[in-house]
């Protein structure tokens, strides 16, 4: 037999449904980078470090949650070859499902509010996902409701990963993000700051950090108003509260104003060389507010994605 034939026979007989594990292995282990100039006004013993989740293969923190939700569903037998992955998303989770679905050979169907940035729509299309748009007037809650409607009409066709209620979402951060921050700060971390969408990042990471030391403070950042311009974030008081979100596990919630968050995203680009999204601007704005109140501390803050997906918006026109 020729080498080619041997190789083909091997691939045919392989029991693993995974096309290639190489790219999925690149999810997580993101860099933690010191913020230097923006923090100049803080006491010298207050250090702020940003975890750059834009370094994930799909460009956002949601790669972690999506990969874990998909692989846990495979292990549980809920996700099989014949199923289509279905969920509602305002973009980043959808991008993560789409590329991971492409790698593993699953069809992906997403319900996305019609007003997400053009870049997101194009990226989803590039990865071959089927996208259903929900009313832009209804925001992400409209997408949640429409995805459930699609699911209950054909429950046998879909595997609904339900990022808002799926424990695999925070678990990805418990095992990954939280453990990485402890290692990267050599256990020195005193405060953790993250913005909330599903709450997966803050819940899973927070739990891991609290287990490591009860002294570590977990601080959530949310839009200061129901009507806001922070893509990916949820104003909890006016939204469908995700099942995985438990406010009692937080030490504090800081409301971030849209305009100040945009301005901070611009400063991150011009003063730190970091082109990041709106929710990173919000998280950094809150981390700085927090830092001003401290005498001493090591603050780890999540930057959920890069800014290149927002170039069509007015994010940097301050």
């Amino acid at each position: 037999m020729s080498v080619q034939k041997l190789l083909e026979a091997h691939l045919r007989n392989s029991s693993s449904p995974v096309v290639s594990r190489s790219i999925v292995e690149l999810v997580g282990k993101t860099p933690l980078v010191r913020i230097n100039r923006i923090t100049a006004e803080l006491p010298k013993d207050v250090e702020i470090y940003a975890k750059l989740e834009g370094y994930n293969p799909g460009g956002s923190v949601k790669d972690r949650a999506a990969l874990r939700m998909i692989e846990d569903a495979e292990d549980q037998g809920r996700l099989t070859r014949d199923k289509v992955i279905l969920d509602s998303t305002s973009g980043n989770t959808g991008i993560a499902y789409s590329w991971i679905g492409a790698v593993k050979g699953y069809k992906v169907e997403l319900v996305v509010p019609g007003n997400v940035s053009e870049e997101r729509k194009k990226i989803l299309n590039a990865f071959g996902a089927k996208v259903v748009f929900s009313s832009p007037l209804e925001g992400s809650d409209g997408a949640i409701r429409l995805a459930w409607k699609i699911y209950v009409e054909h429950p046998d066709r879909y595997c609904k990963l339900d990022q808002y209620n799926n424990p695999s979402n925070p678990q990805a951060h418990y095992d990954g993000t939280g453990a990485e921050i402890i290692a990267q700060t050599e256990g020195r971390v005193t405060h953790f700051v993250a913005s909330i969408g599903t709450g997966g990042t803050i819940m899973g990471t927070g739990r891991r950090l609290k287990e490591f030391s009860k002294e570590i403070k977990v601080v959530a950042v949310e839009p200061d108003n129901a009507f806001h311009g922070l893509e990916g974030l949820k104003h909890m008081a006016s939204s469908i509260v995700p099942g995985i979100y438990h406010e009692d596990e937080l030490d504090e919630k800081i409301p971030a104003p849209t305009e100040e968050s945009y301005l901070m995203a611009k400063r991150l680009a011009r003063e730190e060389g970091l082109l990041v999204g709106q929710s990173s601007g919000a998280a950094m704005w809150a981390a700085l507010e927090l830092g001003k109140r401290l005498q001493k501390g090591v603050v780890a803050v999540i930057f959920p994605d890069n800014g290149d997906k927002y170039l069509s918006t007015r994010l940097w026109e301050v």
Binding site: P113, S140, A143, K234, R314
Partner: peptide, 12 residues
């Protein structure tokens, strides 16, 4: 006339 935030509040 429709008033639409330039983003989708909520997740991603």
């Amino acid at each position: 006339l429709s008033i639409i935030p330039a983003i989708a509040g909520g997740v991603f």
